[in-house]
């Protein structure tokens, strides 16, 4: 029999899956020990497009509403149930740890546009090497302070975060925060406050999302 098993999430919940899969396919649990993967059968793995991505997300969110889950990347599929069982067995500790890490929490995504203008020097180049490095240092400092203004207060409300990576463009950053479900409203309020209070930044937040960015161990 051809076809694939499309895998949505990993869970340690004993309950029967509360949702339907893509294209109305039934969801099935494949167990290994106290872990289970939630799958559905399809002829082929779907290609990503706006429609199917939202459909996939809907399945994950329905699952998340009644159990702790680790969402899989879109497009994850295997050929046989044995493959799923092998993965669960091989990576058991990783998955158990991750489930503990995200239990009772959701992911919130924050984007900020930093409105400080770049230096509009009336006296532009040619300039010296020293001036170049000074300007770079200033850029880095500005980038860092903007991060402090937006990231710090939000990280304080979160269990953990994927902090903003230094980008070439000091005007924008995005970060993901793992937030206790009960604190989501506070987090949202804080974003609203930052947006209102900070002249130099425009902040917005989407979510709640399943904890896509927190399934892997990132600590160092």
């Amino acid at each position: 029999m051809s076809g694939v098993l499309y895998v949505y999430a990993i869970t340690d919940s004993l309950a029967a899956p509360s949702a339907t899969g893509l294209h109305g396919a039934a969801l099935r649990r494949i167990k290994s020990g106290r872990l289970a993967a939630l799958v559905s059968e399809h002829a082929t793995t779907p290609e990503p497009d706006e429609e199917v991505l939202w459909a996939h997300e809907q399945v994950i969110e329905e699952l998340m509403s009644s159990a702790t889950i680790l969402p899989l990347r879109f497009g994850s599929s295997v050929e046989r149930a044995e493959d799923v069982i092998a993965m669960l067995a091989e990576r058991r500790e990783e998955f158990v740890d991750a489930l503990e890490r995200v239990r009772g929490a959701v992911e919130l995504s924050v984007r900020a546009e930093l409105l400080e203008a770049p230096r509009l020097d009336p006296a532009p180049p040619p300039r010296s090497g020293t001036a170049y490095l000074m300007e770079r240092a200033e850029q880095e400092r500005r980038g860092r302070s903007a991060v402090e203004l937006v990231h710090r207060p939000l990280a304080a409300l979160a269990r953990s975060s994927v902090p903003p990576v230094g980008t070439r463009d000091p005007h924008q950053f995005k970060a993901a925060y793992l937030v206790d479900a009960e604190r989501v409203e506070d987090f949202g309020s804080r974003v609203g406050e930052l947006n209102a209070d900070l002249d130099s930044a425009r902040v917005s937040c989407t979510g709640p999302w399943p904890p896509y960015s927190f399934v892997a161990e990132r600590g160092r």
Binding site: V7, I10, P48, E50, L53, W54, H56, E57, L70, P71, L72, R73, F74, G75, S76, S77, V78, M87, F95, A98, E107, S109, R111, K174, S204, T206, G207, W209, P210, Y212, S213, V215, A216
Partner: peptide, 19 residues
Amino acid sequence: DVSLLDLVDRLLDGGVVIH
């Protein structure tokens, strides 16, 4: 738009990787 961007960031770049 921002919802779609964040969705794509998560579904295509995040989550447990099976392979």
